[in-house]
Simulated scan of single mutants.
Amino acid sequence: MIKGNFKTMFYFLLAFFLLTGCSRNDTRYFADAEDQGIAIFSSTGNNLLSCFIDGKPWRTVSRTTGSFTYYRTNYEVDIFKQVTGTLKDTLVISWMGYFEGNTIMTNSFSLHLAVEPGFGYKDLNLLQGQRLTIDTAFNYFSLTVNGFNSKGTGHIYFHSIRLDSMGLGMYSGSMSGLLDADFNTSKITRGRFDHWIVPDQVHF
């Protein structure tokens, strides 16, 4: 009888682990020895943006994939185009993250660029090696912290950006670079980003 109970428990636990599985973390964080609290600048697909917001370390959420029964991946960055119906559409690169030590309260940081309605992945690739000054009503950064949204100016440098078409509106590639932003009451400094981009993250 006891042997039978152990056998039943074994199969129950086996089924539980097969169904739930383990989550996979595709973000790699390598601390910068000279800037405590943020990661080193890299261009190797570490799936991370880190920076200081008002001197406090901030980083994007980890890119995690769920269990066997929950395959949805949580992404730290998304790239999409908003169709405005005007002379210009808006390209948005949006990061989701949190302040160090507070993983529950997530915040967002986005770049908004005015682009031609026909803007596509090949146009995005032309930003490689470009340093953009973001300082107009159409090109701006946005920051949402604790439910409060601010628009700001700043700079972004695309050290690398490359998307390739996989057909049927699907794209993959990589993106890395540096940024800073000023929201008058808040400042983002020492920002560096490094991402491997998969089709679920790109929407044109």
Rank of each mutant, 00 (worst) to 15 (best):
R131G: 01
S42D: 15
L48Y: 03
T84W: 10
V92Q: 00
S165A: 04
R190E: 09
M175F: 02
I161G: 10
A137N: 07
V83W: 06
F99R: 14
T136C: 01
G55W: 04
P199S: 13
T106Y: 07
I53V: 04
T73N: 04
F52G: 04
V145T: 06
I156F: 04
R59H: 02
H159R: 10
N184P: 11
F138K: 15
R192H: 06
T106F: 04
G4K: 12
Y29L: 08
N5Q: 08
Q36P: 13
F10P: 15
A181R: 01
V145K: 11
T27K: 12
Y75P: 09
F16M: 08
N46P: 06
G118H: 02
S150A: 09
S108L: 00
S50K: 04
M105R: 12
I156N: 09
P117Q: 05
D135M: 04
V202S: 02
E116A: 07
F30Y: 08
Q82N: 06
D26S: 11
L124E: 15
I197S: 15
A181E: 02
Y11D: 08
D164W: 14
D54N: 11
N184L: 05
G101Q: 07
E34I: 08
F80C: 14
G66N: 09
R131P: 07
A33K: 14
I156K: 04
V92H: 01
Q36E: 10
F141R: 01
G120L: 01
G45R: 15
S62W: 06
R24V: 11
I161N: 14
R131Y: 00
W196D: 14
S165W: 03
F68Q: 06
L127W: 08
T73W: 02
D32C: 15
L132C: 05
M9Q: 11
L87N: 10
P57D: 03
L179R: 05
T73G: 03
Y171N: 13
T44I: 14
Q36W: 03
I40E: 10
V92C: 10
F119D: 03
Y98S: 10
C22A: 10
R190I: 03
I53L: 02
L111Q: 04
I188G: 03
Y98I: 06
D194M: 05
M105K: 15
L163K: 12
T185R: 10
T44C: 03
